[in-house]
Each structure stands twice: as C-alpha cells, then as structure tokens.
Design a protein around this nucleic acid. Structure first.
Lengths: 165, 165
DNA sequence: TTTATACAAGACAACAAACATCTTATTTAT
DNA sequence: ATAAATAAGATGTTTGTTGTCTTGTATAAA
C-alpha cells in the first residue's frame, strides 16, 4: 500500500518541467540529475508520461522532454495514475465481479469511501499550486542548465539532494 | 497501492469472529472454509492477529480462535495495520529523514493529508457497525458449525462463496 | 495414559512486481 | 556525414506476496 518509485520519479519529473513552464524543452539527463532519477529509468517513465499526453518527447540532438499541458491543468492524481494505473486500494473494489455482496457489503463501502477521498485529494493538488510551495527539487536555476556549451558544466550546482517525493 | 490478500483475509476472519461475538471459540478450519481462506495461510494470519491482541489462540483438541476484544472496539484500521504495518502511502512520508524538504514540501503535504484521511476513514469503521450490514461472508448459521460431533458434518452449507473483501 | 485432534513455528518455494540497466536502433541538429 | 539524444524492449536483480510443508507441542477425551 505504497506508491511505487516510478510514480515518485514521475512526480519529480513533472515538477521540474512545470517549474520551467509549458513548452520549454528540458534535457533528459539534466532532469535525471537534478531530480535524482536513474537516467535509464527516466527514459521509460518519460514514455509513459508521453503516452498519457502530459509531455512531448523530442528526439535527436538537442532533444528532451517538453511539458504539453499547463501546470494548473495537471493533477497529482493524473501523474500517479499514469504510472500505477487507476487507484482502487483493494481487490474487492477493483474487481467487483469477484465479490459476492458487491456494493451492499459494509467493508466494500468503507473502501469505496476511502478510495474516493484519496483520489479527490490527489485531484485537488494541481502542479501550479505545488510549484508555488517549497519543493523537494532544487530547480531555481533550471533554465541555464541546458545552456549552450555546458554539457558537463554543471558542477557548481547546490549540494546533492537525497530521496524526495 | 493495493491491500494485500493477507489483510483481506484477516478482515474476513475478524468479521467471522465478530459475528459470533467476543469470547466464542471458532474452529480454524471452519473459519478457513467459510471465509475462503487457505487454511495454512490462516494459521499465519491468526498468529499476527494474536500478537496484536485481537484474538486468542487455543491449542489442542477443540482448539481454535477466540475474539478477545468487543467488535465495537476493533477498527478496520487496526486489522489492516496489524497485517501490513502502519500505512504511509509513500516513501517520503514513511522516512522523512530521506527527504530534504520535509514538511515544507508541497507534495509531501498532500500525501500527509491523504494518509490522514485514509486512516481516519478506516478508523471510523468498527466491526460492530460492519457486521450489522450485509457482509460478504455468509455466517448466519455459524454457531452450530463447531457443534458436537460434526467434524466433517458441514456439507449442508450454503453454496460456496467467491472472492470477498 | 494413550490417542487423536488441533494449532505453533518457521523453513521453503513459486510467482509476481518493482527497480534498474543495457543494447541496438532511430531521429535530429550541425 | 557525424555526433548527440531518445526509442524500444530485452534482460537482470531484488523484494514482496502468497502460499505450502514439516516438525513439534498442547489439549481433550477415551
């Protein structure tokens, strides 16, 4: 009953892009480094985010990820469910056909309620609100990372980040 | 982000016992059969429930499980967390030491809120309320299952149950 | 006191999911 | 053309879930 790492990484990736704003291209390795995501893993995560229409992937030299939607139109729920599928919390709710009492079951009703609350809370959290607050990723000077000739010229970055949500 | 089967089984087990009432002994194999729990698995689950003080296990001939607490004093949260540990929903909340922004992080705050709501909802669901509703386990004629000489005399039971919460 | 019944305790195994890496191919800017 | 950058997916490692099995111990009843 815990969020997967892939989903936590996806959230950080979107935060990074949202900080830059919609339509701004970000180098994949820059994202990986700043958001502390294993680079190859980020590639896979990016593909899921692209399929869901959250980002666009530019191939080739000077390629990278671009946020497609406005941060205010992206919810935490959307990012999470893109990565882990629709949230159900328990099997009985996920596959009602396997449950003989269906919605009449008292336990079932509690789980339905819990699920709805959880999804509502995550849906209320839009990325425009999230990036206004202090956030786990230090992206204050994001834009000049992908600057002209600094393929590895980023070692004056702030101290490395630990694990973050 | 899904409840484990062990926890779903534990809930069914407690419902079975709660229907009988506190202090009433139930044969383990009867519970396993009626609540559709693999018998050996129920043994392990029972041990966890006993350690948590929810049930008492009687060994030897005519042994079985006995509910220790009143159904009104047992919550769904208690049973669930006995089986899967305290609910955190994400790593960042579970191990704040690994997160550099701590409670100041906007994403963190959303998860804290979601977690509290979920736990509150599960805490409000006490088993006296749950067994008053229609429930997935058919336990109407529970008491005469463990009756005198019916070690295998239970084949007049209602049609078998599918998967339940 | 012997026997059958029933649970304890924990080792073990099959399977699935999560987590991550690596390789080969393709796309694009210069 | 060449180098940079991602695509796509095969593969590997680790962890967790979901059980089963074996050996031992406790208890009731003959």
């Amino acid at each position: 009953m815990r969020l997967t790492r892939a989903a936590e990484y996806a959230i950080r990736c979107i935060i990074y892009l949202a900080k830059q704003g919609r339509g701004v291209l970000a180098n994949k390795n820059d994202i990986a480094e700043r958001a502390e995501i294993p680079p190859h893993f980020l590639a896979k995560i990016g593909q899921d985010l692209a399929k869901a229409g959250l980002i666009e992937i530019r191939q080739g030299a000077k390629g990278g990820f671009v946020l497609v939607k406005e941060p205010r139109d992206i919810t935490l729920l959307e990012v999470v469910e893109t990565m882990i599928g629709e949230i159900y919390l328990n099997d009985c709710v996920a596959r009602p056909s396997g449950c003989n009492a269906l919605s009449a079951c008292g336990v079932h009703q509690v789980w339905i309620r819990a699920r709805n609350q959880l999804r509502d809370t995550l849906r209320q959290a839009t990325f425009d609100k999230l990036i206004k607050k202090k956030i786990c990723i230090p992206v204050s000077d994001v834009k000049n990372l992908t600057g002209l000739n600094n393929t590895r010229g980023r070692d004056n970055s702030p101290e490395p980040v630990k694990n973050l949500p």
